[in-house]
Amino acid sequence: MKLASLLARAHVRAESLAVLIALSAVMAIISPVFLSFGNLFNIILATATYGILAIGATFVISAAGIDLSLGSVLGLASVTGAFLVVNLGLPWPFAIVGCLAAGLAAGAVNGLIIVRGRVPAFIVTLGMLGIARGLALIISSGRGIYGLPEEILFLGQARPFGVPTPVYVLIVVALVAHYILAHTPFGAHTLALGDNEAAARATGIDVRRQRLMLYSLSGLMAGLAGLIFTARVNTGDPTAGLNYELLAITAAIIGGTNLFGGRGSILGTMIGALIMGVLQNGLNLMAVQAYYQQMAIGIVLIAAVWLDQIRSRGRI
């Protein structure tokens, strides 16, 4: 029982953790290399990119919104940062600024159109999915931009104290995001907005501003994920992050975020992202074709929402 209350305090669902442990146990039995240090790092390294995206997804979905453009914005950020440094020859910090600014800008445009134009988030971000991907291909002429400076590669490939840099980035970002969602007024207003928008407005919460900030934040996370991705593969890749919105949204949902808003937890999402990572890694180790992995993730997403529906029908 002590564990249960500890999990509740950390806003983590016991079921998600149980699934992660069970899945890991199964993989460990099937594949002897699963539990090796090298492989565990592989999992976390792979998790880092879409784990950051999933943090953005968690904020937006907690507020009963959706951001389908996450993966495309990641790609746009990747080529923007690389283009500034490699093609224009600007100093290395511009890769960071470029990635983050491109992500933030795309998110802010999403938010502005949703708030000002009252266009459903589903449509706006679906449109942005196409726009950002197209823009990424235009900027890069459809080719990868190679040859980033050492300082940027450090963010993706270095291993300070034996741990890959992206893992540090993910942990820091996740802790800050957890603090914001679970312990600040901004987080409380996000959950209230997703729970009952009329109530949020009635208590004086500026819901338009809140929405704008949430979509901007989501874009910024996509920009950061784009930066990490670019640094890891040493490429500004216009196809980076293809279908990552599927991974990010699934990680958030199986981590316990309510698709209809009002409930969400960053630590839960991190467990969700790890479940996705373990699942993909395990399927890789079992030499299952990548095509089947796509299917598996889709099935997990639908099953997670389905289970949540069954559960909530039993309650409120």
């Binding site: 007024p185 959950l191 209230a192 729970d195 009952n196 949020a200 208590t203 009002g262």
Partner: peptide
Amino acid sequence: ALAGQQDVANNIFLGREPTKRLWGILPSF
């Protein structure tokens, strides 16, 4: 105008949450 998934106490303070600094450092806790 209540937020059904939030608890009783949070609903009473909805939109006007009192904050402090966590450990004297972290703002808006």
